[in-house]
Design a protein around this nucleic acid. Structure first.
Length: 452
RNA sequence: GUGGCCAUGGUGUAGUGGUAACACUAGAGUUUGUGGAACUCUCAUCACGGGUUCGAAUCCCGUUGGCCACCCCA
């Protein structure tokens, strides 16, 4: 907890992180770097990001998902209630912001709870059901950075909220994500799916796990020894060898699902089969967040037969609305991150569609011409012609060079002579042929050439 | 939060105690209004701070950041 500021004007906000502040006296760095776990997306990378965002947008739109944007800050309790206080995410990874007025806000660590909040707050439950929503934006988690893991990362998520509890939506969410991955040309992916049951069957199963592990506590790893009481499901995906060994003792969850849940799972799988989406049932797949129920899934990428990691996850969260004070409302969704998608695309050397080069490039010669350059370019722009330029360079040679490097077809050369003649030279850089045309006919001439 | 590895121009690298090299990229130029080749030149006090030493990019400590593992997840 940072000390309260005793000055007359306290800071509007301060941020408390799960760690203690290391040095109270901060030395002013000579060179600034991005904070740990946060990164810039430079123009070169932006090509990839743009590709992901556009693809997601197009797909979401096609499948009838409407975009929703929520604030980056929310009441911290929203996440405590929705995600669960016992989870790593809210227990130790949330960036907490305290306002001058005493509000305790959090930088959102995930997107589902805010969307659910918006659904309740704006009574979206009164519109057509279900509401199919998608979002894209930065999320924040104060954890240690690692491969494909950041403190600020950009998530793309889909949510289907409301209506009847229909397994077809589970399948549709998975379908859209599958298409996204396909269209991004990401290969070697796999879908893992599981059901973690509902209020009826999950507690029973939990007890059965606890029974199965009874008297084995000493053999478990330290984490699991604690988890067996609080969250026994998590024992199943512990990777520690000692815990792996004991896993065989646990009953198979598929056999323990209640009728409603197993019917639900079955029909999700049937829809997937109908779509030709292959999947692997994985009864060890569990989610740490409180709001999940029934279907949970994950899409992962493998390389050399080895699992590289999940790039996407989601599931059903029928209890979330209730946890947030609303009515029990069926809901299913999932999320991926642009960082991970881009990382995989780069690793797999996905080819980005080539950017279409501009057709024309404006070149000025001399001060008089330079003065008129912006004006002429504006005329072209308002006629819908994209124009390249290197206005800061005054030598003709340098300007031509840069037009050439950009792969431009037509150079427009405008100098002293052209000012007098009220003309401009159109030079074809491919054929090296050029001719002078009246300035008033420039747009027309360019369009004529563009067709040919 | 714990642990390991790492940090040299815009990029990728060389240089392991005597004052930074190579490639690519970028910019300027090779005379006066014409590009794509070639050539010339320019761009780092070696992340930051401190220490050891006559002397440090090179050794030590700290900070910051990166990569990786555990944990968890997108």
């Amino acid at each position: 907890m940072p000390p309260p500021n005793t000055n007359k004007s306290p800071p509007a906000i301060f941020i408390t992180v799960t760690t203690k502040p290391k040095n109270t006296k901060e030395p002013a760095p000579k060179t600034f770097q991005t904070p740990r776990g946060m990164h810039d997306v430079l123009p070169g990378d932006e090509l990839w990001w743009d590709r992901v965002r556009r693809t997601a947008q197009t797909l979401a739109d096609f499948y009838g998902f409407r975009r929703i944007e929520t604030p980056i800050l929310e009441q911290a309790t929203l996440f405590k209630k929705g995600i669960g206080e016992e989870t790593d995410m809210v227990e130790k990874e949330m960036y907490i912001v305290r306002t001058k007025g005493g509000d305790v806000l959090a930088l959102r660590p995930e997107g589902t709870a805010p969307v659910a909040r918006a659904y309740l707050q704006h009574h979206l439950g009164r519109g057509a059901q279900p509401q199919k929503l998608w979002y894209e934006g930065p999320m924040f988690r104060h954890e240690n950075p690692q491969a494909g893991r950041f403190r600020q990362f950009d998530q793309i998520g889909l949510e289907v909220i409301g209506g009847v509890n229909d397994p077809i939506y589970d399948a549709q969410v998975i379908l859209v994500f599958t298409r996204l991955i396909e269209e991004l040309k990401i290969k070697n992916t796999g879908l893992k799916i599981n059901s973690i049951g509902c209020r009826v069957c999950r507690p029973i199963y939990k007890r059965q796990i606890q029974n199965a592990y009874r008297d084995q506590e000493k053999k478990l790893c330290a984490d699991c020894a604690g988890r067996i009481k609080t969250n026994p499901l998590r024992l199943l995906d512990c990777k520690k060898p000692e815990c792996q060994e004991l896993k065989g003792r646990a009953p198979n969850f598929f056999d323990k699902l209640c009728v409603t849940c197993s019917t639900h799972l079955k029909s999700v799988l049937e829809y997937l089969e109908e779509l030709g989406i292959s999947y692997g049932l994985d009864n060890q797949l569990v989610r740490g967040l409180d709001y999940y129920s029934r279907t949970v899934f994950e899409i992962f990428v493998e390389g050399d037969g080895k699992e590289v990691g999940a790039i996407l996850g989601g599931g059903r969260y029928d209890y979330l609305m209730e946890l947030l004070g609303g009515r029990l409302t069926p809901a299913v969704g999932g999320a991926t991150s642009i960082e991970r998608l881009v990382a995989v695309m780069k690793a797999q050397e996905v080819k980005l569609p080539a950017k279409t080069a501009k057709k024309v490039f404006f070149i000025h010669v001399g001060d008089m011409a330079k003065k008129k350059s912006l004006r002429i370019i504006e005329n072209l722009r308002s006629a819908g012609i994209a124009v390249g330029e290197a206005l800061g360079r005054d030598s003709l040679r340098a300007q031509l060079k840069s037009a050439d490097k950009d792969g431009i077809e037509l150079a427009l050369i405008f100098g002293q002579r052209e000012i007098f003649e009220e003309s401009i030279i159109i030079r074809n850089l491919k054929s090296s042929l050029q001719e002078s045309v009246p300035l008033s006919k420039l747009v027309e001439e360019i369009k004529r050439r563009a067709k040919g």
